[in-house]
Design a protein around this nucleic acid. Structure first.
Lengths: 229, 229
DNA sequence: GCAGAAACGGACCGATCGTTCCACTTGAGT
DNA sequence: ACTCAAGTGGAACGATCGGTCCGTTTCTGC
C-alpha cells in the first residue's frame, strides 16, 4: 500500500503530510474513541480516550482540537452507513418491505453504537460536517416514504417527521436499557411499525418484550460506570 | 395556623422541630429545586439550586444531605399524582378508555416536568423512597391491563413491560425535543396506542406531527443553557 | 432583653473536566 | 550520521462539581 494512512477514515481527507508516528497515533486515537463511544456513549472524557489510545492528552488535543472534530472523524463512516441504508431500502423492489427494513436497520445501528445513537437523535454538541450527509440521506428517505405510501401499505398519515421521532425515542430506549435489556428497542420499533402500517399491510412479527427484571435492572443504575483500566 | 411548615411537601414528614427561618428556607429550596428540575431536568447542580433559592450551599446540604434526599422531597407529590393516575384509570367504566387515558396522562406528566420524566424512566441516581410508591402503582396497573384486555380492545400481545418501554421512549422524546417542539411526545404516544389497540378498538385520533423545522431545531442545541440569574 | 443554641453562608477541599504549555524525544531529508 | 523541525506526554491551568468547615448572624425560651 502506497499510503497506509487513512484506511480508518474513508470519508475524511486523508490527513496527509503527517509524520508516520503521528499518523499511527491518529489511528489509535480514532480506534479507541470509536470503541469507547460505542460502548459508553458520548459522555466519555477526552482524557479517557487518550488513555485508552495510549497517548498523552496533549497529543489528542493536537490531532483533534475540539471534541466536535473528534466526533466528526469517528462517526464519518457510520454516517456513510446510515446514508447507504436508505439507498439500499430504495433498491428493494417492495417499497414497504424496504421501508420497514430501513427503520429496523437504522435503529439497529443506534443499538449497536450508543454514541451513534446520540449523534443521530440526541445531537450533543452536534458535529458540523455530519449534518450535510444526514441532510443528503433525508432526500432519499422522502422518496422511500412516497413509494411506500403508493403501495398502500404505509398509512397516509405517516410523515417523515415520524422517522425522526422514532430515532429520538429509540435513542432514549437504547441508552437507558443499555446492556441489561439490549433488545428492548426491537419491541419499540415493532410497535411503531405496526402503527405505521395501513390495514392489510404485512407486518413483521412483534418481537418479545424484555424480561421484566432485566428491564427493571436497566432502569436502575445508569450514568456512572467509572471503570478504570 | 398552628404549624405553617410543610404545606409544600404533603407526603413527607412535616420536618417538625425546625426553627421558623430554617423551615422557610427549606420551602424555598424545595420550590427552587422543583422549578429548576422541571425546566432543566435532573442535571442541574446543587449549587444552582442553592443560588436560585437564595441560600448558601451549606444550607442546602444541611437540609438535604444528598442529592437523592432532595429528589425524594421534591418529587414526592408528583409520584403521588403518578400513583393516583392509575387509580383514576381503574375507576373508568370503560377499561380501554381508562387505559389509553392513563398512558396519555403519565406521558403528559413527563412532558410537563423534565425532571420527573427522568425520575420515571431514566432513573438517575434513583431516589430510594420513590421506588416503593412506584411499585405500589405497578400492581394497580397490572389490574388495569387485565381489564382492558378483557374488553377485547387491548391486544393480547401487550405486556406491562410495554408501559415501561413507552415511558422510557417518551422520556427521551421529551428531553430531546424540549421546548422547541413540545408536543412531539403526543405523536409518539398516539402511535404506540394505535399499535396496542386490537382491530376494531376505538383509537384516539393521531396528533399531528411537529413542524419539521421545529423538530430539527429541537435536535440541534440541547445540553448547555448555562443561564445566569 | 439576654443568653445560648440553632441556623446561616462564604470559603475551602478534593475530584474531574477540557485545554494549554514546554522541555524532551524522534522521524526524515541530506 | 547529523540535524532540526515535527511530534510527544507530563505537568499545570481554570472552571465546575458535590460536599464540609467555621466564624457570624438570628431566632427563641426564659
Amino acid at each position: 500500500m502506497t499510503s497506509p494512512t487513512s484506511d480508518q477514515t474513508p470519508g475524511q481527507q486523508p490527513a496527509t503530510g503527517l509524520r508516520a508516528d503521528a499518523e499511527r497515533n491518529r489511528c489509535r486515537i480514532l480506534e479507541a474513541a470509536r470503541r469507547l463511544y460505542a460502548t459508553e456513549g458520548l459522555g466519555v472524557s477526552m482524557a479517557s480516550v487518550a488513555r485508552k489510545a495510549g497517548v498523552g492528552k496533549a497529543t489528542l488535543s493536537r490531532r483533534f482540537a475540539t471534541r466536535e472534530e473528534l466526533l466528526n472523524a469517528v462517526f464519518a463512516d457510520r454516517m456513510d452507513a446510515y446514508a447507504d441504508a436508505v439507498a439500499e431500502a430504495l433498491a428493494d423492489p417492495d417499497p414497504w418491505h424496504g421501508f420497514t427494513g430501513y427503520l429496523q436497520a437504522i435503529c439497529a445501528m443506534q443499538a449497536s453504537d450508543r454514541g451513534f445513537a446520540d449523534i443521530l437523535a440526541m445531537s450533543f454538541p452536534t458535529a458540523e460536517a455530519l449534518e450535510a450527509r444526514r441532510a443528503e440521506a433525508y432526500d432519499q428517505l422522502l422518496e422511500l416514504i412516497t413509494r411506500a405510501k403508493s403501495t398502500g401499505h404505509l398509512r397516509e398519515d405517516f410523515t417523515h417527521q415520524d422517522v425522526v421521532i422514532l430515532l429520538i425515542a429509540n435513542a432514549g430506549v437504547v441508552t437507558t436499557t443499555g446492556d441489561a435489556a439490549p433488545d428492548t428497542w426491537r419491541r419499540l420499533v415493532g410497535h411503531m411499525i405496526r402503527s405505521y402500517a395501513a390495514p392489510g399491510a404485512p407486518i413483521p412479527p412483534l418481537p418479545d418484550a424484555p424480561r421484566p427484571d432485566d428491564l427493571y435492572r436497566a432502569m436502575v443504575r445508569i450514568s456512572q460506570t467509572a471503570s478504570r483500566t
